[in-house]
Design a protein around this nucleic acid. Structure first.
Lengths: 205, 205
DNA sequence: AAAGATAGCGAGCGGTCACTTTCTAAGTTA
DNA sequence: TAACTTAGAAAGTGACCGCTCGCTATCTTT
């Protein structure tokens, strides 16, 4: 008689990691497509294909799941930026600007924004979000220094500009989902590129 | 014998307007200090000092109250900007930048942001938010034209910059509540002022 | 293989959600 | 003043919320 189910035989650590991973992925997806208010424990578990009991074995509260998702998003953001870093060249600034904009329009970033906005009025989330934010800023400075060939001091000033541009696109991304204005968006890329070029010109010379 | 309660004797229209006004005010306050997810009907009514039955006499759904709040916020934003407009002068650009930043840090704007972010994943809110957004953009262009003494075409390009700066500060305002970085914020004002000056210089000549 | 620990399920908990219903108070019209 | 309409309070309604608990399944240790 054939074995009805070929048991995978995973270790407890593997099982744990698999389900927590599924839960975090589902949380990010829910935040992106349903928003913070509608990312209920039931929604997360439903999407992850896991019972609510399972969720509460690994996370003490719903907030803890969100925090875990925030950490994961930070990790992904950094990885994404690092992966794209080699294409950062001082003679292709528009590419950088468009890249930053594209980043702020991903589902992952939408989830991040949901958490950040919720963190404003939720002390528990605030601490977790602050940590991710700081590490992201630090890494961005490092990456800019490395790939644009700048000394640390100059890199920091360029990073301020990059972060500011990112802020601009972050906020733009929200309004774009509500009401798109292509001409305005195109103009904004042109403008940001120019600003970056001017800042670099001033700093490098 | 003295009258135990000096009846105000208001008309129905006055009564109606008074309570809807209280409800909208309370909604804005709740959004600002508790966030979208925690702005429940109970919270709104509690703050307004009105029963839930009263709320549902004037608004069909919770979403309708939020929409009314969004409309009111748009009105206030425009009024605030128009009031500040006389201080917009081409030789005091930093003042403009600081003004825009201050606007994005008000409670009213925080409430607006809560609605905008929620609108991303809520079709009902989206339409209402889009309307407010468009009228605000239009008015900003007009105001800029009027007070900076620009022709319509130039004014529109300056407005793009102003709106972009506003976007930057909008997003910054969120992160600031999570983790403040004064040096970075100061640098950002300096940078935005410079950008605005450059843009004006290019356009006016 | 026995005993213990960890993972996962699903029913069920009290509480809160948006919203409804019922009834009284206040203003309007005749 | 009587008949009618509108405003508001208060007590529901079922649905859903985050979370707990008792239990079985799977993995680990002995």
């Amino acid at each position: 008689m054939p074995a009805p189910t070929p048991r995978p035989r995973r270790t407890q650590a593997e099982r744990r990691e698999a389900t927590t991973g599924k839960l975090v992925d589902a949380t990010i997806a829910c935040l992106a497509e349903r928003g913070y208010a509608n990312t209920s424990v039931a929604a997360i578990c439903g999407r992850a294909g896991v019972s609510q009991g399972a969720l509460f074995r690994h996370f003490a509260t719903r907030a803890d799941v969100i925090v875990a998702a925030a950490d994961e998003i930070t990790r992904r953001h950094l990885a994404q930026f690092t992966a794209a870093a080699p294409s950062l060249r001082a003679d292709a600034l528009e590419r950088i600007v468009v890249l930053v904009r594209a980043l702020t329009r991903t589902d992952t970033h939408a989830a991040w924004r949901e958490i950040m906005v919720a963190a404003r009025t939720d002390p528990d989330l605030r601490d977790a979000a602050a940590e991710g934010l700081q590490s992201f800023e630090r890494r961005l400075i490092d990456t800019a220094a490395q790939f644009l060939g700048l000394d640390p001091r100059t890199a920091e000033r360029v990073a301020v500009v990059l972060l500011s541009v990112m802020h601009m696109f972050d906020s733009e991304a929200v309004t774009v989902t509500v009401y798109a204005n292509e001409r305005l968006e195109r103009e904004r890329v042109r403008w940001a590129t120019q600003m970056l070029a001017r800042e670099l010109a001033v700093l490098v010379h």
